[in-house]
Amino acid sequence: MPRHRHEVTVDSLAAQPPKHGQTKGEHILEALQATAQATPAGSLLPSERALADHFRVSRMTVRGAVDELASKGFATRVPGRGTFVKHPQLTHSETFRSFSDDMRLRGLEPGSLGYRSSTRGATQAIATALGVEPGSEILHIERVRTADGEPMALERTNVSLDRFPGLRAQMSADESLYGLIQRLYGIRLESARQRVSISRLSARDATKLAVAEGDPAFLVERTALDNMGRVVEFGRSLYRGDRYAIEMHVGAASSLTVS
């Protein structure tokens, strides 16, 4: 039978010996999770029989470890086909923070790929969003934001250079835009207006995010504000639909009292 093009072999599993007091099931789970985190999503994991033979345990012990791996979001079972690597979704919540800060709070290392910046005249739409005159000089930034080296979002954003002169020379690929603005100009970003919709990735954008053309993504339009309520940034970014979930807090409408 031909091998799956992203098949994980038992020989490639983490070979660390069990820790003191660790059960066989815990040891197998640790090895599988470490492998899943270092393997592309969709990769086929070894069968329960192959794992049982490799670790010299019963298939019941292996099944428990694989079930736990799936419950933690690192694998998914497909009847008749096997168990495949899955990367847990990150919650895109209402809490306002930069991408860099958000990833670090999740225990992930933020980074960037394909960084490009340019200066251009503001279109009518961008000028309106930033609160500047059409044609005003803006800094446009495009980069793929990564977490532990994995592409997560394609960021495209705009900032007024009239308000932040010299920003382009100071900005770099892995720099937090919000952190840099606070450090250089003493302006703290405090809130944002966001509009989220569903988009299908073009071939160009899918390549940047290392997924297939047509895959779903969250299109997030963000207008970021400072602590005085002034617009600092306006952008439209694409977040991978397979790696993000949107979280919102919804409450009941207030009752109306008629007198």
Rank of each mutant, 00 (worst) to 15 (best):
A70P: 00
R77A: 04
R59P: 04
E137G: 07
G82N: 09
F99P: 02
L130I: 06
I138R: 03
T119I: 14
P88A: 00
R106W: 05
S118D: 05
A65R: 08
G114T: 10
R97D: 04
G73A: 02
Q89C: 04
S136K: 01
G121I: 11
F96H: 12
T146Q: 11
E94S: 09
G135V: 10
G114Q: 09
D67W: 04
S98I: 09
L113Y: 09
D101R: 11
V78I: 15
K86H: 08
T83S: 05
F99E: 08
V85C: 09
L113W: 14
K86M: 13
G64C: 09
G131T: 03
E137K: 15
T128G: 01
E133L: 02
R81W: 14
I138D: 00
L113E: 15
T91Q: 04
V78H: 14
D102A: 10
T119M: 10
G111M: 12
G82L: 11
R97M: 02
R77L: 00
T128M: 00
R77P: 01
T95Q: 12
G107C: 08
R104P: 00
D67V: 09
G121L: 06
S93N: 13
A70H: 02
R116C: 05
L139R: 14
R63C: 02
S136W: 07
S100F: 01
Q124G: 08
E133T: 15
G80Y: 14
A122W: 03
R63F: 03
D67M: 09
G111S: 10
D101F: 00
I141K: 03
L113S: 10
G107Y: 01
D67Q: 12
S100M: 00
L69D: 00
G82W: 12
E133I: 12
S71Q: 11
P134K: 06
T95P: 05
S136F: 05
E94V: 15
D102M: 14
A129W: 05
P134Y: 07
S93I: 13
S71D: 15
K72Y: 13
L69K: 13
T128Y: 01
Q89G: 06
S93E: 14
V78Q: 13
S112G: 13
D101G: 07
R116I: 10
G121V: 12
G107N: 01
E109V: 15
V62Y: 08
S136H: 09
A122T: 00
G135P: 11
S136A: 11
R120Y: 05
L69R: 10
G131S: 07
